[in-house]
Design a protein around this nucleic acid. Structure first.
Lengths: 187, 187
DNA sequence: GTCTATAACTCGATAGAC
DNA sequence: GTCTATCGAGTTATAGAC
């Protein structure tokens, strides 16, 4: 792994742990084992480096969501597989956490990948839900877009509750509760 | 309003907008119209001031949740009133946002009010849900604790989605989706 | 109780040697 | 391509005058 690569990975880790404001170029360099000169040679500065890191993190999230949502099988089973997938719950969502950083939201280059990720995820889930309704797995009374937003919100909020509690328990309960509600909503 | 009071209110506003790491004593002082000396006379430093601000914000959240949840009326109606209450969606939750700040989670004095707030809120909602099940409004198949966690997570995640989208739409959709699922889960 | 001055440090970024 | 030195500003906090 060359220096530019290590700098991006280091930035990804620090943005996840400490957010944009809490991440200093100095900390990025130390973690990457690179010096000032190296960093400012490869990147114009902190926003440039953050843009590269956020784009990669967003791409990875999409790719991992596709693994479960685009798999073969019944709609509800794919949603359950996605919700129950192994996650580092106490670390929170590396994309969702960026929405708490006003400096990220204020910079269109940093904000755009975050907005696109959740737009894409809601649309993808909505399509799977619509499929489940057509197949007779889910009640036609459910609105796919609304329900998709509820599912993504349950995940994002589950992370918040887990970090507040210092335990993954509330996350697991929130997921279980959402799945129970979905399973109760059969035609 | 005296200086100490203005300093706490100023800290509350800044913690909400910019988080703990993003909030400097200087910014607190400027917003409060108080000087360095005044601040360090009334408070030992940034963590002390933040502790006072967080305690007050947490108390206020609980008090406002009680307004809807402890009101008279059927269980489901109280939950809907709580979920549909007027909110500054794009500002996010002033308590939930603190879970993204590692410096808050690392300090027990700052972390405790955050943990207690969500513990209390989940317990309160769980009690209302249990009441709804007993009254025959909701299916006995629902687990009150799980469902309560799902509801709180939907709110917290709804804020995340709204800030990501730069619009309150996904928040409203997530709430609507959760209410539709709850209403579909009748005995 | 509030002020100003200052300390010791980190911030994000640039300059210029090698 | 990476280094070290340095910049000016901002950080949290203390000291001491008033």
């Amino acid at each position: 792994m060359d220096a530019a690569e290590r700098l991006v990975e280091s930035t990804r880790a620090l943005l996840w742990e400490r957010g944009y404001t809490g991440t200093s170029p100095r900390a990025i360099q130390e973690r990457a084992g690179a010096g000032q000169g190296s960093m400012y040679h490869h990147f114009r500065g902190k926003p440039d480096l953050a843009a590269a890191a956020i784009r990669r993190t967003a791409d990875e999230l999409r790719s991992r969501a596709r693994d479960q949502l685009a798999a073969p099988g019944p709609a509800l089973a794919r949603i359950e597989a996605y919700l129950r997938r192994d996650r580092d719950v106490l670390l929170g969502c590396p994309v969702g956490r960026l929405t708490q950083d006003p400096d990220v939201l204020a910079d269109p280059t940093l904000h755009a990948p975050v907005a696109e990720t959740f737009d894409w995820l809601c649309a993808e889930l909505s399509a799977v839900l619509a499929e489940g309704i057509t197949a007779g797995e889910l009640s036609p009374a459910l609105d796919p877009d609304d329900t998709a937003a509820t599912i993504v919100a349950t995940l994002q909020g589950g992370y918040v509750l887990a970090r507040a509690a210092g335990s993954r328990d509330p996350f697991d309960r929130a997921i279980q509760g959402a799945l129970s509600l979905l399973k109760a909503a059969t035609p």
